[in-house]
Computed example of a mutant assay.
Amino acid sequence: MPLRGIVPPLVTPLLDNDTLDVAGLERLIEHVISGGVHALFLLGTTGEFASLSYKIREDLIRLSCQFAKGRVPVLVGISDSAFTESLNLARKAALYGADAVVITPPYYFSSGQPELLEYLKRTMVQMPLPLFVYNMPVHTKVMFAPETVRAAADIPGIIGIKDSSANLAYFNQVQYLLKHRPDFTFMVGPEEITAEFVMMGGHGGVNGGANMFPKLYVDLYNAAAAHDLPKVMALRDKVLQISTSIYNVGQFGSSYLKGLKCALSVMGICNDFMAEPFHRFNEPERKIIQEALEKIDYKSLL
């Protein structure tokens, strides 16, 4: 510790609402590992976890650990509105060989910061694996405040945080409060700020685009860690081109996920079926994604 580098939040390849695209999942895992990623993160936002049945979640954990073959650490999202279900997922993750689990604040009911800290303490009493906290306020409507993160770092078994707030002021506050804990992993979600985050002392990125172009994001991380600013600027431009062209088709709230899955389908990696309530892009949008990939010259990034 700390875990460093690029950790793709793996998409969940599906054939229908309750069936994994198993061949696609294996291709995807081989694709990202061969691109040099440092770990895998299952059942995050990009993995559509909240739309998946527990059967699908368990199948995904089992098969992903099997396909990873111990080559990189496997992190498993166990976020749920029900405490018992989070623990059940954690036990399945431990059973199938995952290395750590990741949890957001419980969603639906709004928790105060003292309640969140109590929740983490109670969780860790029964947790079979090390745990990362996941700050995702846009979806959970609750955030782990900087002081709560500092206190959580003192709970045995909590080993890091993934922050998807896209707030560099938040990063600075948390980093300052954790300066006595260089072993505590601090990673960022939004790929648009990953380079700046790493150059400011962050440990890496949990970047959705690494599903498509793992080597690009690994190269960006390495350049940022080395403070190679000219290389950072060149690679960051490519990341921003991907972000603005692939993730914004149709201007839906779901455009990021639809665009990412559609791109993976165009690239021949996995199926682009979306779990309800969303549907995959239709042919007009798919054509836009295909043209965007060609404009990016995506084959040169593989």
Rank of each mutant, 00 (worst) to 15 (best):
D272V: 00
G5C: 09
F49G: 02
D18H: 13
P284G: 09
F281N: 04
M136S: 03
N167R: 06
Y247S: 01
C65Q: 05
T104S: 14
M199N: 08
G70L: 05
G201W: 06
D297R: 15
L40C: 08
L15N: 05
Y170V: 06
L42Y: 03
Y119P: 07
P106A: 13
I242Y: 15
I155F: 07
T45A: 00
L3V: 11
A90T: 10
M199K: 05
N172R: 15
M233K: 14
F41M: 10
I193K: 08
K258H: 02
F109V: 13
M199W: 06
K287R: 12
T104C: 14
L240E: 07
L129V: 10
V11W: 02
T84M: 04
G44K: 08
L177E: 09
H180M: 08
I158A: 12
S255P: 04
K92C: 09
N207R: 01
F49T: 00
Q126A: 13
R150P: 02
A152S: 10
K55M: 03
H227M: 08
Y134R: 12
A39F: 05
G250V: 00
L131V: 15
V102P: 08
L42D: 01
M143Q: 13
T19R: 12
D219F: 02
T185S: 15
S164W: 04
E191H: 06
V22E: 05
S245D: 09
Y247H: 02
G70H: 04
M233V: 14
D228R: 06
D163E: 08
S53R: 09
H180N: 15
P190K: 03
P284C: 14
G47F: 00
L260A: 01
L20S: 07
Q251P: 02
Q66W: 06
A93F: 10
Q126F: 13
Q241V: 05
R181A: 11
D154K: 13
G253T: 03
L120V: 14
G209K: 00
P182R: 04
I161P: 11
N271Y: 11
S164C: 15
D228W: 03
A263P: 07
K258D: 00
Y119K: 07
E196K: 12
P182I: 01
L168T: 13
L240I: 12
S34A: 14
G204Y: 00
A224K: 11
G204V: 05
V76H: 01
E58D: 08
P190A: 06
M187C: 08
D237K: 15
D21N: 06
V239T: 02
Q113F: 12
L216R: 05
M127F: 12
L117P: 04
Y256M: 01
I155V: 15
E191C: 05
G202W: 02
A234R: 11
A226Y: 11
R27E: 02
G5F: 00
Q241N: 04
E196P: 03
Q126G: 03
S110M: 07
L257M: 06
M136P: 01
K258F: 01
E285W: 05
G24Y: 07
E291A: 13
M127G: 12
S254F: 09
G70D: 04
K55T: 13
K141F: 07
T104H: 11
A263V: 11
Y134E: 06
M274Q: 13
S64G: 03
D154A: 14
K179N: 14
